[in-house]
Amino acid sequence: MKSRAAATPFALWMSIFTVVPMAIVVWFAFTDETGAFTMANIAQIWQYAGTYVDSIWMGALATVICLLLAYPVALSISRKSENMQRTMVMIVMLPMWMNFLLRTYAWMTLLENNGLINQFLRWIGVIGEGASLELINTDGAVVLGMVYNFLPFMILPLYSVMAKLDNRVIEAAQDLGSNNWQVFRRVILPLSAPGIVSGVTMVFVPAVSTFVISKLLGGSKNMMIGDVIETMFVGDGCNYNVGAALSLVLMVLMLLCMSLMRNVDNGEDELGGMMT
């Protein structure tokens, strides 16, 4: 009974900050303006199916790019001396301390039709005078923005797992005849799997539901599901009930994606062990 009493503050905290808000979302999703039960909100969601797919696709793409960029960085940081590690982690975190909006606006000025990149390309003569590459308001710009903003969230969990990797285990693998690639595939990769899972979670979830990046870099035609949800809560055409339904479905979809990934990850582990 003692342990149950000790858990009370946590249970209270959980119910105030997690369970109650969730319940409110569910309540709104299944009611109309009068508060009566309805499935109409959920039924409406079908018209946004394309946006969901696009958002998940772009979020996944950004996550994969983040992983590919972050993995070698995290690995090389983790193999440095302790002082060097601290410095390098600091450098990775530094951009995170600058305002998120500011960083995204900075990309706007770089990518604009009259932005720095296009000006530079005109100056060196790659594109003609007056012409410009269409950089901003594209899916590419949105993915770039996501990768840029969320990269540290991939590097840090990967690094923290890799830093704990025992060098003697790597030596043991070499001792048993593994070359560098085999050491990586048979020891480092499986042992860093927990870092991959948490890194992917920390990038994928905010990337799929982002609305600022897509709004600033993607323009009006590249709406992501986050933008749609925003319109339901802000401005003239707002509808809390549909917005709540959209959020609820997004959450379910992301949970599905994450559990799918975890299964793939576990399966790969076993495969890695069994493969000859």
Binding site: D166, R168, V169, E171, A172, A173, D175, L176, V187, P190, L191, A193, D269, G273
Partner: peptide, 14 residues
Amino acid sequence: VNTIFQRYALFPHL
């Protein structure tokens, strides 16, 4: 040659 390491250095994931 093969080594038996101090504190074994077994592969924790296997």
